[in-house]
């Protein structure tokens, strides 16, 4: 047996778990090899000291009585209070924290909602009357921009006036009596083809180059 074969067997040898044949082989190697002999001797000696050292600490006398007295002792009053504080106080504290967080969230939410409301009103106002005041208030405007804005306002105002007139004339035409409509039909029969005339239709006729109403909103956006 060589050293590298002998060393893995040391533990089993020390624990008496080695088969008799292997124990004999290891014993023979131990006689021949001083290194393995010394290693085994150190392990045996250390194990023996640990096992048989008579110096042992023991519990102080009265340990059992003290232990049993501990079991009989009611918990100190402060412990009861502390536990009660933990059992009752902890859920209450948790609830308070949750409530505070909840309310804090909604407080912030209100502010945010209020902020949105303000913004919403402003947006609505812009939609209803497309005045550029908010933008003008936000940034100083130079003279050229002011002129362009004034021109656009005048143009928009004239468009609105024209539109209002057209609506008014349509309203008037709808207000015609049945008798008047019959007169119009008779007059149409009497006239030659292509000269039909409806009352108020002259107001409905659009001026040359004027954009349809649907395009006016584009002008607002272009601004």
């Amino acid at each position: 047996m060589r050293c590298e074969q002998a060393r893995p067997l040391f533990d089993a040898y020390l624990d008496g778990e080695l088969s008799p044949a292997l124990a004999t082989e290891l014993g023979a190697h131990r006689v021949r090899c001083s290194e393995c002999r010394r290693a085994l001797a150190l392990m045996q000696v250390s194990g023996h000291v640990i096992k048989s050292d008579p110096d042992e600490a023991t519990v102080q006398s009265g340990f059992t009585d003290r232990l049993l007295a501990c079991m009989d002792e009611p918990e100190p009053r402060w412990t009861h209070r502390f536990r009660r504080a933990i059992y009752v106080g902890a859920p209450l504290a948790a609830a308070a924290v949750i409530a505070a967080a909840f309310l804090g969230y909604f407080d912030r939410g209100d502010a945010m909602v209020a902020g949105h409301k303000v913004e919403g009103v402003q947006v609505t106002a812009v939609d209803e009357a497309p005045t550029p005041e908010p933008k003008a208030a936000q940034a100083p405007m130079d003279d050229a921009a002011a002129r362009r804005l004034e021109e656009w306002l005048n143009k928009t105002q004239s468009n609105v006036d024209t539109k209002q007139k057209s609506v008014q004339s349509l309203q008037e035409s709808l207000d015609l009596t049945i008798g008047q409509w019959l007169d119009i039909l008779n007059a149409r029969k009497a006239r030659p083809e292509g000269e039909t005339h409806y009352p108020g239709s002259e107001e409905l006729a659009k001026p040359d180059g004027e954009k349809p109403a649907s395009e006016e909103s584009d002008d607002v956006e272009d601004l």
């Binding site: 010394r38 290693a39 001797a41 150190l42 000696v45 250390s46 023996h48």
Partner: peptide, 19 residues
């Protein structure tokens, strides 16, 4: 066991044999 052996390597052979 191996660590104990390493830590006790300084023991003299004579002491070891005696013990």
């Amino acid at each position: 066991r191996n660590r104990l052996r390493e830590m006790l390597e300084s023991l003299r052979d004579q002491d070891l044999e005696q013990f």
